[in-house]
Amino acid sequence: MRVIVDRALCDDHGQCEIAAPNVFRIGVDGKLEYDERPDPSERDAIEEAADACPLQAILVQE
């Protein structure tokens, strides 16, 4: 599984971090950081993050 965030869309709201805190986090600079190759056990949380992102900027690839 690979996670891709469209940086052109992402507005650093951090809703993804709320949904999947082990994969996404807002850094001290206020910018999104994330794990591109997360553990498969995070799948459901990542789907929720992708749904919750206000900009719909998160893509999950197999």
Partner: peptide, 15 residues
Amino acid sequence: HHRIRRLLNPAFSPK
């Protein structure tokens, strides 16, 4: 906040 938001979120998904 995050706990409640996580529980509410799926009911508001775009699908």
